[in-house]
Design a protein around this nucleic acid. Structure first.
Lengths: 245, 245
DNA sequence: TATATTTGTCTATTGATATAGACAACTAAA
DNA sequence: TTTAGTTGTCTATATCAATAGACAAATATA
């Protein structure tokens, strides 16, 4: 550990900075050998703040479900490591997480038909304002939301993919039902942002949390774009692993 | 725009949330058609806060060099769009940014010899505690810091690469001087975090800023790992573009 | 059963954050 | 020159954030 001190009057409360540090330490596994957090007094000393400030941080993480305090015993860790989400030629949600999670699920929030925006039409290589089908989904691993995505498909080519998704609860299988037996990741752009209120709601995050945003194009065997999607990952629950071959 | 409202008593001051929103709007280009920000009263209405709160946000961004206020005239944007940093089989800093920046530079902060940690030895595929050379660098585009990296090399195979870097000011050329004429990106893991105080200092960020962290392995023509590096990008200045073929 | 350790609760005080209103200073346009 | 629109500065008040100290309540252990 280096001297990762806190910043005062930065517009971010000390208790939130401490909460973020502890959460991140837990995610990377560098928090504690056992499942127990050091006593409040020791943490207060380590961060150079009052015990009550540490308590505010712990209370926030307790609210999030990351910690659990027991009077007289100590404060204990509930969650553990980040999931590693692979991005490669063949990127699929459930298969990608492999053995890291017991159960994975992608559920549909909403679907609809839009006219393709500038961005969507460019990425799908179709004319602007062409009708496209939009799917808003949330993916969970072991019941914890991991990512939310909006995907667009050419409505001419993939009519009924929304119905297919409702039936199969999987993009891969919905595409298969539309005759696309294989597809590959063509491009992925990644950025990071503070979570929006919608992210916080849907991914069950806390205020000030971070999301990793990917904008990706999948193409069929002929190299034609079939899907453009924008996905927001909870950055404290996943890391993205790029496979470059 | 959806209802991206603010959160009260979240531990993040309203003025900072507003500053982050404005900064991000500027980065994505969705801030204003011209270079002028709406009047303070209008922004206050839009965010549902007092004018003084908006002023605090503007003052912070002025301090950062993102905005410039002129009494009687208005508040103006000193625009800077996000750079798109490509990650592919052949990933090199200067070449990657291409025409997006006028000048690029990577300078050495520090170098030294360590015993390989668990992580480093695993990624370089060498025995733990083998001596490794570490290079701490900061990369700039047009004089603005974009990323900072720590790279490790097997000290047996790459003796003197620290000297070579000092001479050539480029990892690619320093490797060439050590007999590696070509190398490819083997794996890249990406996550996002709040900037540490060291990040804030070296990348000239503001409190609460986000960094994209990549952990990457480069390998030579025979597929042997030659370099492991951890890089921290200023998330408000760059996006990472993954090329999957 | 004592005793030390640890979390929980209370009171009090100070500084940072946010709201409210008024008016000065400056700019651009009528 | 006048006016409307905009940023800059000031005072005042209420709430949140952080510090400080004291003691209660629960747990583990000597």
């Amino acid at each position: 550990m280096t001297g990762a001190l806190l910043e005062r009057k930065s517009g971010v409360a000390l208790w939130r900075q401490i909460a973020d540090l502890i959460r991140s330490d837990i995610a990377t596994g560098s928090a504690a050998k056992n499942d127990r957090l050091p006593p409040e007094m020791e943490l207060a000393g380590r961060y150079g703040v009052n015990r009550h400030t540490v308590r505010a941080a712990i209370a926030a993480l307790e609210q999030e479900g990351v910690l659990r305090s027991e009077q007289g015993r100590g404060t204990f860790i509930r969650r553990r490591k980040r999931l590693s989400y692979p991005i490669a030629k063949r990127t699929r949600f459930s298969a990608g997480l492999g053995t890291q999670a017991g159960t994975t699920r992608t559920r549909l929030l909403q679907s609809g038909e839009d006219a393709a925006s500038q961005t969507v039409s460019e990425n799908l290589d179709i004319a602007p304002d062409t009708p496209v089908i939009r799917l808003d989904t949330v993916s969970e691993a072991d019941g914890v939301p991991v990512s939310r995505a909006t995907s667009w498909f050419d409505a001419n080519r993939f009519a009924g993919i929304d119905k297919a998704f409702e039936e199969h609860a999987s993009i891969t299988r919905a595409l298969a039902a539309c005759g696309v037996t294989d597809y590959v990741r063509k491009s992925t752009v990644i950025e990071a942002r503070h979570a929006s209120t919608e992210d916080i709601d849907l991914l069950r995050l806390s205020a000030g949390a971070i999301v990793l945003v990917t904008r990706a194009v999948n193409a069929d065997a002929d190299g034609r774009p079939i899907q453009y999607s924008e996905t927001r990952f909870a950055a404290d629950r996943v890391e993205l692993k790029i496979e470059t071959d």
